[in-house]
Structures are given as structure tokens and as C-alpha cells.
């Protein structure tokens, strides 16, 4: 503890995107609550919040678990335009969900214009190898094309899930505009930072 210095947390809004039933809520729930929901229960949008430490600095993540179905397109577009980072999911057991991520990425680029699109491409349900429809090489090739991190995970593993969000924070920091850093840290943050620091 002697070497630790309290630093103001950067706060980010991270949006989880992907087709229906690829495991968006499972990812968010595992990350924020340490719980894996066994049953598929299609979600209306949910919000989660959690602090993690990345590169010895705290990061406060607000996670938006979006609606995968084609409702509420307007609100999803607003999140794409106004959020800091993205986790794009497909299921390795569902070829259609992989086909859907390319047009999604194109739409993200259009909506954000010249702003960077910090994202991590994630293939879920990697534990169900018998039902695999999307090869690891396909996901890796797409991530290389997009120049973004790529992971294949099972949301049953908290370690893997945490790694996803660590990666997205690194992407957001790496792609942040140079002048944007200073204004996002309030001058009096140290005084308002809670006494107890919770690192997930």
C-alpha cells in the first residue's frame, strides 16, 4: 500500500454490441457481478458499473448492455455516436452473428465520422467447440483487418471476461485524441474520490 498513489479514475462508457443471443448480457453480468446466467433471457437494455485497474490506474466503466434485436435502432445509434468504447460480440456457434458484425462495424464508422472507434472483437461460446461454426482464423483475420484486439472466450470464465474489458480500456486510452486527456480529469478529483477503492 505504501507505493500506491490514489489517482483519479478515468470514466468510460463501454457499449456491448452484437446479434441476438450471442451472450451480451452474460458478458456484462459476469464482469459486473461475477455471475454467469445459465438461461438465455433476452434483455431490454441494462446498465452496469464497475471499477477496474488498468496499467496501475483505476478506470470506472459504465457498461451498456444493448438490445440485440432490431428494436430501438435510434437509441443504439446514439450510443454508438456518444460512447467511449465498444465490445463487439459474435458467437462462434452462430455463423449469422459473425456475418452481422461487419455491417455493424461499417455503421459505427459512419455514425462516428472522424472519431476513433475503440473496440474489441470477441467470439463467445468458445467452450462449445462441438457446435463451432466460425473458425478462430476467421475472427483473427477480421480483427487484423479492423486493427483491433481479438479474443475468443467463454463467458463462464471470469478471467477471460475481465480480460475483454481490460483490452477495451487499453484501446480507448491508445486511441484517445491527444488533447482530450486533460479536460476529462476534474481538478478536484482527489478530494471526491471515495476512501475505499474497489478493484474488481
Amino acid at each position: 500500500m505504501e507505493g500506491l498513489v490514489l489517482r483519479p479514475a478515468k470514466d468510460y462508457r463501454v457499449v456491448v454490441l452484437g446479434s441476438v443471443a450471442v451472450g451480451k448480457t452474460a458478458l456484462a453480468t459476469q464482469f459486473a457481478c461475477g455471475r454467469f446466467p445459465e438461461r438465455c433471457e433476452p434483455s431490454v437494455e441494462e446498465l452496469f458499473s464497475k471499477v477496474i485497474e488498468v496499467n496501475r490506474a483505476p478506470a470506472l466503466l459504465e457498461i451498456v448492455d444493448t438490445v440485440g434485436a432490431e428494436h430501438l435502432v435510434t437509441l443504439k445509434d446514439l450510443y454508438i455516436r456518444n460512447s467511449d468504447g465498444f465490445v463487439v460480440l459474435y458467437s462462434v456457434c452462430d455463423e449469422a452473428s459473425f456475418q452481422a458484425v461487419r455491417p455493424l462495424r461499417e455503421r459505427m464508422g459512419r455514425l462516428r465520422g472522424s472519431r476513433a472507434v475503440p473496440l474489441v472483437l470477441v467470439g463467445t461460446k468458445a467452450d462449445l467447440d462441438a457446435e463451432r461454426q466460425v473458425l478462430t482464423a476467421q475472427g483473427r483475420a477480421l480483427a487484423r483487418e479492423w486493427r483491433c484486439p481479438f479474443l475468443e472466450i467463454t463467458t463462464k470464465s471470469k478471467t477471460m471476461v475481465d480480460h475483454v474489458f481490460t483490452q477495451v480500456v487499453r484501446e480507448m486510452e491508445a486511441l484517445a485524441p491527444p488533447g482530450q486527456e486533460a479536460p476529462r480529469i476534474p481538478a478536484n478529483a482527489l478530494e471526491t474520490w471515495p476512501a475505499e477503492r474497489f478493484i474488481g
Binding site: 483519479p8 470514466d11 462508457r13 470506472l60 451498456v64 479536460p183 476534474p186 478536484n188 474497489f198
Partner: peptide
């Protein structure tokens, strides 16, 4: 800048 200040007080967010 001004809007970011309250974020450090609370760990809850609405969307």
C-alpha cells in the same frame, strides 16, 4: 469538462 466532475463522486450511472 464541467460535466465530468460529478462522475468521481458516484459509481452509479444511468445511460
Amino acid at each position: 469538462l464541467s460535466n465530468k466532475k460529478p462522475n468521481t463522486v458516484s459509481t452509479s450511472h444511468s445511460g
